[in-house]
Computed example of a mutant assay.
Amino acid sequence: MANSIDIIVKNSNGDEAEAAASASSILTIVNAAYFTISLSLGAQAVLLNTLIEDHATTKLKYNFVVADRILGPWAMLMTWLSLCTLALISSLYILRCVFHLWLVKAEYSDREAVNFLFVPWISWLLLLRATPQQVLVRLPHEVLLWALVAPIVALDIKLYGQWFTSEKRPLSAVANPTSHLPMVGNFVGAWAAAGVGWRETALCLFAVGMVHYVVVFITLYQRLTGFRAALRPVSSLFFGTPSAACLAWSAISGGFGVACKMLFFLSLFLLASLMCRPAYFKKSIKKFSVAWWAYSFPVTFVAVASTQYAEEVKGVAAGGLMLLLSSLSLLVFVAMLILTALNTDRLLRQNDSSLSFT
């Protein structure tokens, strides 16, 4: 491109070579789906902080005195890594909006990409949730919460209103697994609002999200066709969304009651259902793409819900389930980190159309 700034590097022989990406081309590549990386980092930070603060771990007689010394620095590292990654991707996306606004408009008009526009706000809300309390009290967290929830509500009105009234783009025509992301935004927003005592706001967000989740779930259950293979990892949201709802309702109601347990068990059932059908993801795993990060944060949501379930039930089986899901979450997360490090060049190639919305 005319305004691109080429990055020049020298190899060991002293020869000059052009890097594969330019500053301008990176802005055309980094779309809203890349925020799933920061979302997974934030979810992992929340899980680690939950494990540290969870009193059920000591009651279940696990040696979390040692684990606290290990998980404490790891949780702090994840929080800072999430902040840095989210700030970097947000900066690139803001520049994308300034210099390539037509690409952002294309995302806004795409039936899959528009759902990823919720992910930046969800990522910041999770980061706010993962921030240590002693740091949080020094921040205007109520102002920050309003600033993060307001865009979710605005996108809700646009998207849900379109599903409800549009003749060209009704839900039955555009529904796909990424359609769960708006509901995740509602539930995480409700979870965060309940955490600062905004019960009415939390109830409003939860009610809107829950009704639409039921409608989306039934729609997708009846028809799951025409979904691109590259985005099939996003099908993990089938079990991640009820877990997010479970955490939101637990924060609103003040306990892990029957409704929370039902949502948690639904998550476990859907997780087992997808794990038993690896052939469904066969085409999506041929080439690495940023969509693979959608495997990480839904598992982490289930793991966080399992910690609250273990706190409520206080049984060996519940504690074992918590450890199993937490270990699975960490395993998937580390695998995504390694795969991303090995495929960085692929994620920054302009000719990689596996996750292109234009």
Rank of each mutant, 00 (worst) to 15 (best):
A2P: 05
N3H: 11
N3L: 08
S4H: 11
I5F: 14
D6V: 09
I7S: 12
I8C: 12
I8K: 15
N11D: 15
E16W: 11
E18T: 10
A21F: 15
A21N: 05
S24R: 12
S25W: 08
V30D: 01
T36G: 08
S38Y: 02
Q44V: 13
V46C: 15
V46T: 14
L47A: 10
L48R: 03
I52M: 11
E53Y: 03
I70M: 09
I70G: 03
G72Y: 10
W74R: 01
M76T: 03
M76Y: 07
L77H: 02
T79D: 05
T79P: 00
C84I: 15
T85C: 15
A87F: 09
I89M: 06
S90Q: 06
L92Y: 08
V98D: 01
L101T: 05
L103H: 15
L103R: 12
S109L: 11
R111M: 07
F116Y: 14
L117S: 08
V119A: 12
W121H: 12
I122C: 04
I122W: 01
R129G: 02
P132V: 10
Q133V: 14
Q134P: 00
V143P: 00
L144Q: 06
K158I: 11
L159Y: 04
Y160A: 05
T165F: 14
S166T: 08
K168A: 15
L171G: 11
L171E: 07
N176D: 02
P177I: 01
M183F: 00
V184N: 00
G185M: 01
G189E: 04
G189F: 02
A190R: 07
W191F: 14
G195K: 04
E200N: 12
T201I: 09
A202L: 03
F206L: 06
G209I: 06
V211A: 11
V216K: 05
T219P: 08
T219M: 05
L220P: 10
Y221H: 12
Y221R: 13
Q222D: 06
Q222T: 09
L224N: 14
T225C: 13
A230P: 00
S236K: 00
T241Q: 07
S250G: 03
S250H: 13
S253T: 11
K261G: 12
S267K: 03
S273H: 12
L274W: 06
F281A: 04
K282M: 10
K282Y: 07
K282H: 13
K283A: 13
S289Q: 04
S296G: 13
T300F: 04
A303G: 07
T307C: 15
Y309C: 10
A310E: 03
E312C: 07
V313M: 15
G319R: 03
M322A: 14
L323G: 05
L323I: 15
S327F: 15
V332S: 02
L337W: 08
A341I: 04
R346M: 03
R349C: 10
D352A: 11
D352E: 09
D352T: 07
S353P: 11
